[in-house]
Write a protein that binds this DNA or RNA. Sequence first.
DNA 1: TGTCTGTCGGAAAACGTTTACCAATTTGAA
DNA 2: TTCAAATTGGTAAACGTTTTCCGACAGACA
Lengths: 342, 342
Amino acid sequence: MVTIKEIAQAAGVSLATVSRVLTNSRPVNPEIRERVTEVANSLGYVPNTAARALVKRRTDAIGIVVNNLHDPFFHDLLRGFEEGASETDYTVVYCSAMGHEMERKQKYVRYLSNGVVDGIVLYGSYDTDEVLVRELHSMGFPFFLIESCVDGLETNGFLIDNEGGVYNAVRYLRKLGHRRIAYIAGSSEKRVCRDRLAGYYKGMKDLCLNVPEDYVSFIDQNNREGSILMKRFLDMPDESRPTAVLCYDDAVASYAIGYALEQGLKVPQDISVMGFDNQTILPDNYRGPGITSVSQPLYEIGFDSIILLSQLLNGELKGNVTRHYQTHIVEKETVAYLEKED
Amino acid sequence: MVTIKEIAQAAGVSLATVSRVLTNSRPVNPEIRERVTEVANSLGYVPNTAARALVKRRTDAIGIVVNNLHDPFFHDLLRGFEEGASETDYTVVYCSAMGHEMERKQKYVRYLSNGVVDGIVLYGSYDTDEVLVRELHSMGFPFFLIESCVDGLETNGFLIDNEGGVYNAVRYLRKLGHRRIAYIAGSSEKRVCRDRLAGYYKGMKDLCLNVPEDYVSFIDQNNREGSILMKRFLDMPDESRPTAVLCYDDAVASYAIGYALEQGLKVPQDISVMGFDNQTILPDNYRGPGITSVSQPLYEIGFDSIILLSQLLNGELKGNVTRHYQTHIVEKETVAYLEKED
DNA sequence: TGTCTGTCGGAAAACGTTTACCAATTTGAA
DNA sequence: TTCAAATTGGTAAACGTTTTCCGACAGACA
């Protein structure tokens, strides 16, 4: 590794002069300047990131920590990050926490937050990252949270209106004539799932629709259970069988639809199904009809988070920033207009 | 930011002792040890990555540089990286070069290679990264190249047999009875595309199949042109029209198939089409039949690259490592068995 | 009691930069 | 010609660690 010192020796000047040439931080005799640059190039000098970070207390880099890079769920988010990154001069590095375990996320955040990057964008599960977020917060390290917040802590963050998303989905189905709307919910340990379920209840209540106890069922372990839960709905007697099933997730919806199709039913003619997330890739090579879904603006969030973080780092932002993003419904092929009102 | 110095003061010991407690690098009086850990915890100490890197000349981290994180092409590769990462103790960070421009890739590699990570895995386009690779090589920095190599340079790398992949595809089609096999090639500026085309010619020659001039056509700018090129093939008179079209890429294949379907033809009954890459996500929401394709072992390559790099860093590898990976054909629904030989 | 050995804390150097400060030289104005 | 100001090079401190070396002290043994 070639250092500034070697360049100084080779060019017959002091360390300081070399540094000044290389960083353009102060005027230096043109003749010397040229000699130094020449030597630096010929030796193939590359400045040491760590040493520079140490003394400048800045790295001009941004770190992003997500649960998973390969998960299709993050596709649009990543696209947003990348697009945002190309708008700034910051170096952007990504870390995958590989799942939801705090431990690994913490390892990455610690690695990054002390001398590797100047700020972090953290995709959070509401539920598991509290300790981590508190640590970051108490360090005074600049960071943005996506889909996460900690009660009683003022943080910069991006939140998605999950409750409102499902609420609007219920209204949408009602507008198309559906009144018997069932719901497949995710694990109630997850905040996201609880919020979405709340949106369902709220929507049904506001529209004065009946929610029989067996209209709400929960995924226990695996999204595949979507098919079992669908079976339960389909096995109900005609007069109480739901005409539409709302799923907390597109993956679950795909299994639910898969089951219905296997039974020789037509979607949406025989039963409407709606999902959430507007995923482009679905498990097990799903090939059914395009799933009508509640879409989150993940691209925008990814993009905005980079832009806002870089503004924060440049001191262009005062106070904390919390942005709420609305979902919208993407109409595809799994929801039918219900002619006869019952 | 809380430093080792503050801990030392608070605990009434020297810097050295604190460091020794924190890194377990030498025995220290249990009583003092406990006092120090306690102080460190209560102050929320996190070691400074940059400072540590500077003196240890090691970061225990690995960097990965790819062209694009969100591109579905990298899905399996990323999955491999992530799986490999969870097998090692190295911290793994990813960078997206956002396209193929050398400049940005160089920026990332320079940032990483001096004090941020101990080694790099670089997904390379054969064609554009030469300067960069030479720089890395002359620095003596440990790195692995994926799908890239530089003539006359001994580097660690993973290569895919693109030529052999297409060669085998030709043989596969021939075995199913096809003799009039056309090819849609990618830009001949790209090494990968040239290799694949070479495989086609070699296969056709070895099987003594005729290659009329108009059986090979080139994508110029955009994969969408796949449909135009397909039109050309379909417009040929019956007796010379190809029975199978081999595409250098699944994306192109999807456009080619799309066009045929639009014309009311059936794939594969009326014409067989085969792709390369075995992509799960295809452009424009392709919904046609599953594309029979030549698949690259990207998952394995991703996985192995992490493992081998960590071995290299631990000195468990002697000499340079070059691995060649074979492709295999994934049979789906776009290639038919041709009954009548002609 | 004196020496030898082993244990363990502290002082200080080192890693590769940037930059505050100082000194020397040049410039320019009076 | 003289002196202040401006310019520019060098010296050294600083960033937060790790680690080498030294020395103090305790215990063992003769």
